[in-house]
């Protein structure tokens, strides 16, 4: 029996909600077998739990539940303007998981979703089918880890491996997987593919410790990227979001220099840079959900519906970091998110 005097919150995934329609799916069985002690609760539709009113995102983050569901209707979406498209014309993203294991204070998911519980869509095969249909029309650039960190769930889901197997025989598909994970054990199970990009987000140590809760440290991420490069995986480095503090210049200079001391720059596919930005509507919700987070409560400037540090400061941060990165990476391989785009 649990007792609050030793700890107050239930452990992660102590409760798993399962849609009736998802019950018989093989992925459901596999996921449930990972959590033999979890309380399972049958539901009709994931939205009955996920979209309840007045949920407390911050407290739910302390004890998130899993919701296993069947994805219906739309499986693949066109990329949003605040996303970096890397010059790709047919830029899409898909959400096989909604919400994240990690808890970054600046994460837009807390503005986008009404709940911190994690929805896992078990019918990955339907997302593959939809992607297949798009590929018949044109080559597709597909982000598979936008509204989550898919690699962080690999122990439970093995979706990255499945995406790799799918991408391997489809050269017209380029997959981007964004991650902060540093699971070396998983890396050994992944295959180097030309059309599969692992995009690692790097943040200075101080930022990681202060704002990126439960994520691996800078050192752990760098070690993991080293290993990934050794293995021949295609790696993108994302210095995004750049976060403003009084000492931001020295923080980012140290981090970028350390990263390129450790990593062979010629093996890095490309680099993406972007300052923190978020849509006004999401920010409003984020501020409600996280009233005591300085990073969220910063008085950002609203620039036609997108909130950021203001043009002057944003440009200063971008050009400063750009100049640092270009010492190591050819300029054609540096992508920058611009608020005017």
């Amino acid at each position: 029996m649990n007792n609050l005097s030793s700890y107050s919150y239930n452990s992660f995934f102590s409760h798993i909600y399962v849609e009736k329609d998802a019950m018989a799916h093989p992925n459901t069985g596999k996921i449930l077998s990972r959590f033999p002690r979890a309380v399972c609760i049958e539901i009709n539709h994931y939205k009955d739990v996920f979209c309840r009113g007045h949920q407390n995102y911050l407290l739910q983050k302390k004890s998130p539940s899993l919701i296993l569901a069947v994805k219906r209707n739309t499986y693949v979406y066109e990329g949003a303007p605040v996303c970096q498209s890397f010059g790709n014309r047919h830029f899409y993203y898909t959400s096989s998981v909604m919400n994240c294991f990690y808890d970054c204070e600046y994460c837009y998911l807390q503005g986008m979703y009404p709940s911190a519980n994690i929805v896992i869509f078990v019918n990955l095969e339907d997302i593959f089918l939809e992607t297949e249909k798009l590929l018949k029309k044109f080559p597709v650039y597909l982000c598979i880890s936008y509204d989550t960190d898919l690699l962080a769930f690999e122990n439970i889901l093995e979706y990255v491996k499945k995406w790799q197997a799918f991408a391997e025989s489809r050269p017209d598909l380029t997959v981007e997987l964004r991650t902060k994970s540093a699971n070396l054990g998983i890396l050994n199970q992944l295959t180097p593919l030309d059309n599969f990009i692992f995009a690692w987000t790097l943040s200075p140590d101080v930022i990681q410790r202060a704002y990126e809760h439960h994520t691996p440290s800078f050192e752990e991420r760098i070690s993991c990227i080293e290993k990934a490069l050794d293995k021949g995986l295609r790696v993108r480095l994302c210095f995004d979001p750049l976060i403003c503090r009084k000492d931001w210049q020295s923080l980012y200079a140290d981090m970028i220099r350390t990263a390129f001391q450790r990593l062979p720059a010629d093996k890095i596919n490309d680099v993406s840079l972007g300052v923190f930005r978020v849509s006004r509507d999401y920010l409003k919700q984020m501020r409600k959900q996280r009233p005591d987070s300085a990073i969220i409560q910063y008085p950002y400037e609203n620039d036609r519906g997108v909130c950021h540090y203001g043009r002057k400061l944003s440009q200063e941060m971008i050009s400063y970091t750009y100049n640092l990165v270009k010492e190591f990476i050819p300029e054609k391989n540096i992508y920058v998110w611009k608020e005017t785009s």
Binding site: L4, Y9, I41
Partner: peptide
Amino acid sequence: RCFYPDILFAHP
């Protein structure tokens, strides 16, 4: 209709 209270706190 079904309703779901959040069970966030450890309990006996």
